[in-house]
């Protein structure tokens, strides 16, 4: 498992735990009122699980298993994939914290813009690796 995959998968697992915790609080609140601010976790719950967990896990595994190149660096230029990891996590945290703590539409737009840039960077890395093995 390459280093970037380790970072992406472990970060995805942390997002899974955070997202499940937010989801558990939201669900529990519906049967047993805990705190009036808990409903504000809903956008963070979705952001953490859809992007931070699912998308990031898919990126990490794709970086690991997509076909490699024979001559030169076996996974090609890794820099856009690392940039995707940084941008994706900055984006998820900005959007999640901005929505939950500050109810900030601006933070959500900034965070989701970073996520979109992460998608572009990851596609830039992965595109040439979508090819036959060998």
């Amino acid at each position: 498992m390459p280093r970037l995959t380790v970072w992406m998968v472990r970060t995805a697992l942390l997002h899974l735990l955070l997202g499940f915790t937010a989801g558990a609080l939201l669900l529990a609140q519906r049967g047993m009122p805990l705190h009036p601010a808990i409903p504000r976790l809903r956008p963070a719950h979705a952001e953490l699980l859809l992007i931070g967990w699912t998308v990031q896990l898919a990126m990490g595994v794709a970086f690991w298993i997509l076909p490699r190149f024979r001559p030169g660096p076996e996974r090609g230029d890794e820099r856009p994939a690392w940039a995707a990891w940084v941008l994706l996590n900055l984006g998820v945290l900005t959007a999640a914290v901005g929505a939950a703590a500050f109810d900030s539409g601006t933070a959500i737009v900034v965070g989701r813009s970073a996520e979109a840039l992460a998608a572009v960077a990851f596609a830039r890395h992965a595109w040439p690796r979508v090819k036959p093995f060998g």
């Binding site: 899974l16 735990l17 499940f20 915790t21 989801g23 558990a24 609080l25 939201l26 669900l27 529990a28 519906r30 049967g31 047993m32």
Partner: peptide, 15 residues
Amino acid sequence: LLLPCSAAAQLLAGV
């Protein structure tokens, strides 16, 4: 407590 129990079970599954 059905929904809080459901929430706790799913969170522990993730852990």
